[in-house]
């Protein structure tokens, strides 16, 4: 296995089972078993989703966060995916949780200067809608947004809305992934979509499949892509499975059970 030595990516470290608060081993069969994410509402804040792509499989409700008459609003959208990224993420989520419900909120809406407002507006809306899972495969380095994103992440945490967000690909500080109320994801270099690692060295929580990932792309095609953006929906998809089995779970429980069944956990006597 190749080891990538830079920030926000797996270094191949193991984690000890002593860090898991349980008297006995937790198995994936109990965590998600044969769950398919059925009935779990997942919001994808991204570039939009090409719902008719075979790897997405339809059943997507689409919205856009945009400026209208001087105010930022979320409203229905029919533009599809304007960059391809959101379709890729949606396809990964559906590959692991094929029966989850997908709702897209497009945050690429024609104004680079307003992209921070679009992200805030989309997150506020998604938290107010009480989606149990929100996939945010993007982040912002703008310090001016930090406090609002932090408040939103905390609001989501207490409301039972779990944010699953990408760590920045580069060794820089960005948000919202870095907040403890957010499940944050970086990449490892393995190809198994269900293989994921618990990071013993936070702030990144988990590493999932993010290098040379085959993904859906608008136009019905597939692409091979790399980046933490694509690791994140793997964890979101697994969380959707967990929530089908355990609908009362919130961010702390999701983080705990994922940690308990991580592939790099070294089991030792308590």
């Amino acid at each position: 296995m190749r080891t990538f030595r830079f920030a926000h990516t797996s270094l191949g470290a193991t984690a000890s089972s002593r860090s898991i608060a349980t008297p006995r081993t937790i198995e994936r069969d109990w965590v998600w078993g044969d769950a398919t994410g059925r009935g779990v509402r997942v919001c994808v804040i991204d570039s939009g989703i090409a719902a008719d792509h075979p790897l997405v499989g339809g059943g997507v409700t689409a919205y856009v966060a945009e400026e209208a008459d001087g105010a930022w609003v979320v409203r229905p959208d029919d533009a599809g995916d304007v960059a391809g990224h959101g379709t890729a993420c949606a396809g990964v989520i559906r590959s692991l949780a094929p029966e989850c419900e997908l709702v897209s909120v497009r945050v690429l809406a024609g104004n680079l200067r307003g992209n921070g407002d679009a992200l805030i507006t989309a997150l506020e809306w998604a938290v107010a809608q009480r989606f149990p899972l929100i996939n945010v495969s993007l982040s912002s380095r703008k310090e001016g947004l930090k406090e609002r994103l932090h408040d939103l992440a905390d609001t989501a945490f207490f409301a039972g809305v779990s944010l699953v967000s990408s760590a920045h690909n580069s060794p820089v500080v960005s948000y919202p992934w870095r907040f403890p109320s957010v499940i944050s994801v970086g990449s490892h270099s393995r190809t198994d979509p269900e293989y994921f690692e618990l990071n013993p060295d936070p702030p990144v929580d988990f590493f999932a499949c993010g290098i040379n990932v085959s993904v859906a792309w608008p136009g019905g095609s597939a692409k091979v892509v790399s980046g933490n953006s694509f690791a994140t929906p793997h964890i979101t998809g697994l969380c959707a499975r967990v929530l089908q089995r355990h609908p009362e779970f919130r961010t702390p429980q999701l983080r705990h059970v994922l940690a308990a069944v991580a592939d790099n956990l070294v089991r030792s006597a308590q």
Binding site: G84, H85, V107, L108, L112, N115, L138, S139, S140, R141, S166, H168, N169, S170, S174, K223, V224, V225, S226, G227, N228, S229
Partner: peptide, 9 residues
């Protein structure tokens, strides 16, 4: 828009 680098094949 995102400030995120990526590779696409």
């Amino acid at each position: 828009n995102t400030g995120e680098p990526l590779v696409i094949r």
